[in-house]
Design a protein around this nucleic acid. Structure first.
Length: 171
DNA sequence: CGCAAGATTGGC
DNA sequence: CCAATCTTGCGT
């Protein structure tokens, strides 16, 4: 096991700490062909607990959100608009359903493009980042600067939650 | 059981 | 502006 792979202690923190900390980290994907590609994470968004109306866990514990109730360090993927797989990492301790959406990696901006590049599918749901042979996160670079802004596409959650500046990106 | 909307993207 | 494409949650 690689020494630089980020373990559960990295993800067992508040999602508002983990989301910005992921900027500059290295996302590693080992494809079925055996090819390994690495990408620097450039943009993330935090979704924080049942009270966050923009977070899927605001619907409570369902088959879809169940993985978010696990301890941090596992993968949460879901299909949106029938064609895009969104990549998320669960954070926080067990029972505090939060996750970080990976909105951008170097060369690929937008969560849909990220999922397409990484060739994600439902089989990644619940996979542990510390154990996975095909997707994990490693120590990366020190970002020169991180800026935050409002999350994208969550107006439906109402003003209180839509205006939270929980989107983080490399300056 | 039907249906509207979605943490999006790309084309017209 | 709007279609693609399908899962999910909610209303009936």
């Amino acid at each position: 096991m690689d020494k630089t792979r980020l373990g559960n202690s990295f993800f067992l923190r508040d999602v508002l700490d983990v989301a910005p900390a992921l900027i500059g980290k290295t996302l590693v994907r080992r494809f079925n062909t055996g090819e390994i590609r690495s990408y620097i994470i450039t943009e993330t968004e935090a979704y924080r607990g049942e009270e966050d109306k923009a977070c899927h866990a605001s619907k409570g514990l369902t088959p879809r959100t169940a993985v978010m109730y696990q301890p941090g360090g596992v993968i949460y993927v879901y299909l949106i608009y029938g064609m895009y797989w969104m990549l998320n990492f669960v954070t926080s301790e067990k029972g505090n359903p939060s996750a970080v959406l990976i909105r951008g990696i170097e060369g690929f901006n937008g969560p849909g493009r990220v999922g397409r590049e990484l060739q994600l599918d439902l089989s990644f749901y619940g996979e542990e980042l510390l154990q996975s042979e095909r997707l994990w996160v490693e120590k990366g670079i020190t970002p020169v600067g991180i800026v935050c802004s409002e999350r994208i596409g969550v107006d439906y959650a109402g003003k209180k939650w839509a205006e939270k500046k929980w989107r983080f990106l490399q300056k």
